[in-house]
Write a protein that binds this DNA or RNA. Structure first.
Lengths: 345, 345
DNA sequence: CTGTTAGCGCCTTCAC
DNA sequence: GTGAAGGCGCTAACAG
């Protein structure tokens, strides 16, 4: 009595189209998928395609998935959607997925407790065909090898040895741009709040910072660098540490991320040190926050949505086996000068 | 020669379990789903469940979907992931979906061009079983009636007539809390930057504002209200307008959203009007931005992740037909006093 | 040029 | 107590 499932109304299936057009169900399937190996007279193609359109036929995803052993979905993991940098990347990726007929399944793994399990489960259930990760995690290596040995894993916005497929920013020029901007403003004592220098992004940004100093004949001072991290709190803590150590010893700061810069500025504000009058601050990567803070934050902006788009394109290529691996570097950093940088006092 | 699909390695299927245990595939299916109508001796249940666990059996989503005409996914649409308020809600929802075995498919419809099409497509392909929308859109009404007449649509964080299922905040007490906070600080000329008063959220927040004034015997001045909107720019524009009209006529502002407040503060900062010394500002809903701006923003915080969780729970209930409609109001606003509010000068 | 056949993995009805 | 059979909608061999 109770209807099983929720599909009460007729769905337009291949079978239905077959009844209507008189062709065989498989013929229709092939026509609709533009199967090249099929030869059929053009007029009939026309007929079939037209009725399909008229009846609003759309292939059932589950059936197609079952048959082709594919899910047409890809997964993305990230620590938190609240990070606007990540949100921009995800938006780009999600757009491409939609356009290409894939679903993007997002898992934020704030709680690292169960991530292994969660991801493994997604893979095992055949729910995702590939995984994009927006941050490095040691465990990713395991998945890269699971599921018939070549489950595609893509590093997005980072890189580490052993990860064949990655879409990254060309970070060094951006870091150089930021640093040179400070030099151009007359600063010579420029501090750097970095990330973990053993890892790719932080190392690149640090390298860019050093290169800029070198190119401009500005002395590099080891003691003007401070390991921070990418979060707001990281920036605040590092700034505290730096100030306690070197109060008055620098007039500008290049922070490894937008949030790091925001944290640093927060501390400066609280300590009554004026930004940018006393100390200039610039961040790396741009988001709404930079515009909205006060003072607004000068940054180096990359096309992050493009990064996300490229990542998704790459992932789809991997999944469809049209490439064995995918590596792309996105350039095009632009300096965005706002209220947090000014000429050296 | 080319492997069809990517499933080369054996997958653990019911059939495989059947071979291993000697039971029939259907028996196993029933045991694993705890089918009550099945009678089987307990020891055998044990055997079957154990081998399933050992071999790491997990049902194939596509097959199950095809058979049951369900996709075990639900959709969520929102204007942009970059809005931290929305991000918090989505995080809560995504968590629940994962735990309950559903996939959450997120579509941000920044470009309103194709939203109809996108959503219709998701539904037609049988990819989502229900839709949560984080903002009101007239078109939603169409979908609520599509797909055999009862495609579940849920309003999340808003409400409008005709939407049976909705999870909303109990907004009035929060708005009252914010306004009373300003009154407590001695303010009597309190402006309000509102949203579109024809719609639920803005109207509720406005009502809370008026209630608070009334309760505290503070005069309501029509000309201290200004329609703004929920974005940063909206707040900035409205603040400009208000200042141009009433410079000096108010000492505090209750803004309809966090971003609205941020925009307002931006303008005040630029005009050299000190926050909170000259004018206090408080927002509605809390996010990282509030903490990170300067001055940091006093707000009224709701458990937004809970809102998202409840929405997902409700959606799942709708989808599984365990309820015909779902309506929940989330309370518990807390005043978070930060740096943008101070005693009346 | 087109149709027939044989499943993909699972669930459900019915039969033993 | 358990097994057999049929089919969800689609695709890909292989036949004509």
């Amino acid at each position: 009595m109770v209807a099983e499932g929720r599909r009460v109304k007729k769905r337009v299936t291949l079978k239905f189209l077959a009844e209507r057009t008189g062709f065989d169900i498989s013929t229709i399937s092939r026509v609709l998928r533009d199967d090249a190996t099929l030869s059929i007279r053009p007029e009939n193609i026309e007929i079939i395609k037209r009725t399909a359109r008229e009846l609003n036929y759309v292939p059932d995803t589950a059936a197609r998935s079952l048959r082709s052993a594919r899910s047409y979905s890809i997964g993305a993991i990230l620590p938190s959607l609240q990070n606007q940098i990540h949100a921009q990347i995800v938006e780009g990726a999600s757009r491409v997925c939609r356009d290409r007929g894939y679903s993007l399944i997002i898992a934020h793994l704030a709680d690292p407790t169960d991530e292994q399990e969660v991801i493994a489960d997604l893979i095992a259930r055949n729910r995702i065909e590939g995984l994009m990760s927006l941050t490095f995690r040691e465990e990713l290596r395991r998945f890269a090898g699971s599921h018939d040995g070549d489950f595609p894993v893509m590093a997005v916005n980072w890189w580490a040895p052993g990860f064949e497929s990655a879409v990254t920013l060309d970070e060094r020029p951006g870091a150089r741009l930021a640093t040179e901007h400070l030099v151009d403003l007359g600063h010579t004592r420029i501090a750097h709040l970095s990330g973990d220098l053993n890892r790719f992004n932080a190392a690149e940004r640090f390298a860019g910072y050093r290169e800029a100093l070198m190119l401009r004949d500005v002395m590099f001072h080891e003691d003007l660098t401070q390991t921070a991290g990418y979060g707001y709190e990281d920036g605040a803590r590092a700034m505290e540490a730096l100030l306690d150590r070197k109060q008055g010893g620098f007039t500008a700061v290049f922070a490894v991320s937008m949030l790091t810069a925001a944290g640093a500025i927060g501390v400066l504000n609280r300590r009554g040190i004026r930004v940018p009058e006393d100390i200039s601050v610039i961040g790396f990567n741009d988001g709404m926050l930079a515009e909205v803070m006060s003072p607004s934050l000068s940054t180096v902006a990359y096309p992050l949505a493009d990064l996300g788009r490229a990542a998704a394109e790459g992932m789809i290529a991997l999944v469809e086996k049209s490439v064995p691996q995918y590596r792309l570097v996105i350039g095009g950093p632009r300096l965005i000068q706002r209220g947090s940088t000014a000429v050296c006092p």
